[in-house]
Simulated scan of single mutants.
Amino acid sequence: MKIAVCDDEPLFRENIKNFLDKYYNSLDVGIYTFSNGQQLIEQIRKNEELFQIIFLDIEMPGTDGFESAKIIHDINKNIPIIFLTSHTELAMEGYEVNAFRFLSKPVDEDKLKKALNDIESFLENDEKIMVCDSGTEYVLYVRDIMYIQAENVYINLFTAKGSYLIRKKINEMETLLNKLIFFRSHRSYIVNMEFIESFDGKKIIMKDKKEIPISKKQQNEFKYRMMDYLRKNSK
Score class of each variant (00 low, 15 high):
4 A>Q: 06
5 V>K: 01
5 V>Q: 02
7 D>F: 04
8 D>F: 08
8 D>T: 06
10 P>E: 05
13 R>G: 00
22 K>N: 10
26 S>V: 07
30 G>I: 06
30 G>K: 15
49 E>D: 14
63 T>G: 03
66 F>I: 15
66 F>D: 04
66 F>P: 01
67 E>T: 13
68 S>C: 11
77 K>N: 11
81 I>A: 06
83 F>P: 01
84 L>K: 09
84 L>Q: 14
88 T>E: 13
92 M>L: 15
97 V>P: 06
98 N>G: 01
99 A>H: 08
99 A>G: 15
100 F>A: 09
103 L>E: 02
105 K>R: 12
107 V>P: 01
108 D>H: 08
111 K>D: 15
123 L>P: 06
124 E>T: 02
126 D>N: 14
136 T>L: 14
138 Y>H: 15
144 D>F: 08
148 I>Y: 04
152 N>M: 11
153 V>E: 15
157 L>T: 09
159 T>P: 05
161 K>L: 13
163 S>W: 00
174 E>Y: 14
176 L>R: 13
190 I>C: 05
195 F>M: 06
196 I>T: 03
197 E>R: 14
199 F>W: 08
200 D>G: 12
201 G>P: 06
206 M>S: 04
210 K>I: 09
213 P>K: 03
214 I>F: 05
219 Q>K: 15
220 N>C: 00
225 R>T: 02
231 R>N: 13
231 R>L: 12
